[in-house]
């Protein structure tokens, strides 16, 4: 499975001629039970791929919404291993939806690359995004992940010129994550007109599907990005629903899943020109 699960999902979506909707949720946010309820409800609410964040004390690339989600996750006693345990629970009911684990390097270093890779594979994780591990530093981690066929998903950004893009996509698999804005998560808004040519460039350089994230909050914007990308990632807007539920002393899952439904419907409503163009 693993990388194969990602490839299979993109292949199926290509046949349907649409982009994937990829919600991001944080492990343990706001509690184990609620986070598991959210996770288990995501596919029915329209998630094609799931990004599962693990809490870290120093999330340097995150804006306030995901920083706060990490703090809630940590307060619930969650870390890297407990987040992977959630994935393992999820796999009991769903063997097709790819799970991409996302976070920062230190918890992975702390566990050890090989031990991490084994634990992730046993938990049904398919891909990994490590925000603070650029290609220059990734070789030992890639080696550990390759043994268990987990993809290290690379990030391309507005600051990636053609020369840099070549380095970024070297030896990568699964898909490439295009960071739509220079900045942290959940602050600036992504502009589809600016993103479109960048996505085309990344796709040409990598030969892989391109997911776009950072700065996508509304169904309208999700639809606009879905027209030009292979996958649309929404994170901050979802964890803000968790925050609102906690503030209102309500269960989080219904609110988050309703928002996922709204966003995924928007993504499903448009044909992705780009998907059909991809060879």
């Amino acid at each position: 499975m693993t990388t194969a699960r990602i490839d299979a999902r993109f292949k199926a979506l290509k046949a349907q001629g649409r982009a994937a909707f990829v919600p991001y949720v944080m492990g343990g946010d706001p509690s184990r039970e609620e986070a598991l309820a959210i996770l288990k409800g995501l596919p029915a609410a329209g998630a094609d791929i799931i990004e599962l964040g693990f809490p870290f004390s120093d999330p340097m690339a995150e804006g306030p919404p995901i920083q706060k989600a990490a703090i809630r996750g940590l307060a619930a006693g969650f870390g890297l291993r407990s987040t992977m345990d959630l994935a393992r629970e999820f796999r009991k009911q769903d063997d097709a939806t790819p799970i991409i684990l996302m976070g920062y390097l230190n918890p992975i270093e702390s566990l050890g690359y090989d031990a991490f890779a084994d634990y992730a594979a046993a938990s049904g994780v398919d891909g990994l995004i490590v925000v603070d591990c650029p290609p220059e530093e990734a070789a030992p981690l890639v080696e550990a992940l390759d043994k268990v066929s987990i993809s290290l998903i690379r990030l391309a950004t507005p600051t990636s010129d053609d020369a840099r893009l070549k380095i970024v996509v070297q030896g990568t698999s699964g898909f490439v994550y295009y960071v739509a804005v220079a900045g942290v998560t959940g602050v600036k808004e992504a502009d589809a007109d600016v993103v479109a040519p960048a996505v085309a460039r990344v796709r040409a350089a990598s030969g892989l599907p391109v997911a776009v994230g950072f700065g996508i909050k509304t169904p309208e914007r999700a639809a606009a990005i879905a027209r030009v990308a292979d996958a649309v990632v929404v994170g901050s807007a979802l964890v803000e629903e968790v925050a609102a539920a906690v503030a209102a002393n309500e269960p989080a899952a219904p609110r988050v899943l309703a928002k996922v439904k709204l966003l995924s419907d928007a993504v499903r409503s448009v044909a992705s020109a780009s998907v059909t163009e991809t060879v």
């Binding site: 690339a61 603070d132 650029p134 530093e137 950004t157 600051t159």
Partner: peptide, 10 residues
């Protein structure tokens, strides 16, 4: 080393 977000690498 250089463990930063890809946006900062260039």
């Amino acid at each position: 080393g250089q463990f930063v977000a890809e946006t900062l690498m260039p």
